[in-house]
Amino acid sequence: MLNFDKALDLPPQLQWKYANEPELMTWSIRARNYNTFVANLMFSFMTTVILGATLIMYSVYEGMSQSWRISSCIFFFSLMLLVLLSVTHQRMNFAYRFTQSGVEYCEWKDFPKWALTFLKWFTGMMAIIFIYLTTIDPTFLIGALIGPGAMGLMYLSMANSKTYQRMQTEYHHHFLHWKELTKSTVATNRVMMELEYSVPQEGSIYMTIGRQYIFFTPKDKERVTQLIKNNLLPGTPYVFGKVDVLN
């Protein structure tokens, strides 16, 4: 049975800085660490484009049997929609650990090599199927070029592009002392918090000002927000409001 709530193990590239301190709270989660409104708009637009391409494909396949015509178009639409989802709805892995010293968390994303294997074998199988169907009806040749052909090009670009693979691989470690937090905002539009901070720059009189996002599940919201609130310095703003993730 699949366990989607299984705790995520830290990759070997990341280690807890304050592992020797007792933890106040720890958890891990997969979250969309970007502006989901923009991503959802992009998904809606591209879905419309894919639907248009599917309708064109349906009209081109006018000479074949109705069952094969509908089946091939449904397959094409479903496959392209799945690929689109993998682009617009990616999730980052997060692991959080709160101690008396502060807020510590790691975020990472490994390049999904399993996706290359799946895409390679799936492309091969679909190519064989379409070649066989072409012997029955030559119009399936168009489907072979659009479907397996496009998947083959996608596989080659993913497998051979080091730049693409680096873009899909990230490892980051963050730590903030409680005293460095200058404002805490509990998001009303997403299940998360935004922590604003001010950290001294090493060897400089200036401060680094920024913000970090804390993601959690709805069931952990009360515990996480209360723990952060209790550890803020007196007078530090703790508010509720809309949070726009700027990543």
Rank of each mutant, 00 (worst) to 15 (best):
R97W: 03
F98V: 03
S101C: 00
E104Y: 00
Y105I: 01
E107C: 09
K109R: 13
F111T: 01
P112F: 04
K113Q: 09
A115N: 13
K120R: 13
K120C: 12
F122K: 06
T123L: 10
T123Y: 14
G124F: 15
M125V: 15
M126I: 10
I128A: 15
F130A: 14
I131C: 12
I131R: 09
Y132N: 05
T135E: 04
I136S: 05
G143V: 04
G143Y: 13
L145C: 14
L145T: 09
I146H: 10
P148C: 12
P148H: 14
G149Y: 14
M151T: 15
M154V: 08
L156Y: 12
L156M: 15
L156G: 11
S157K: 09
S157F: 15
S157C: 10
M158P: 00
A159N: 03
A159D: 08
A159H: 10
N160S: 09
S161F: 01
Q165H: 01
R166F: 05
T169E: 11
E170N: 10
H172W: 06
H173M: 06
H174A: 05
H174D: 03
F175V: 01
E180W: 13
E180D: 09
T182D: 07
S184V: 13
T185F: 06
A187E: 11
T188W: 12
E194I: 03
E194C: 12
L195E: 09
E196C: 02
Y197K: 01
V199L: 06
E202V: 08
R211D: 04
Q212L: 08
Q212W: 07
Y213R: 05
I214A: 05
I214W: 10
F216M: 11
F216S: 02
T217H: 13
T217G: 12
K219S: 07
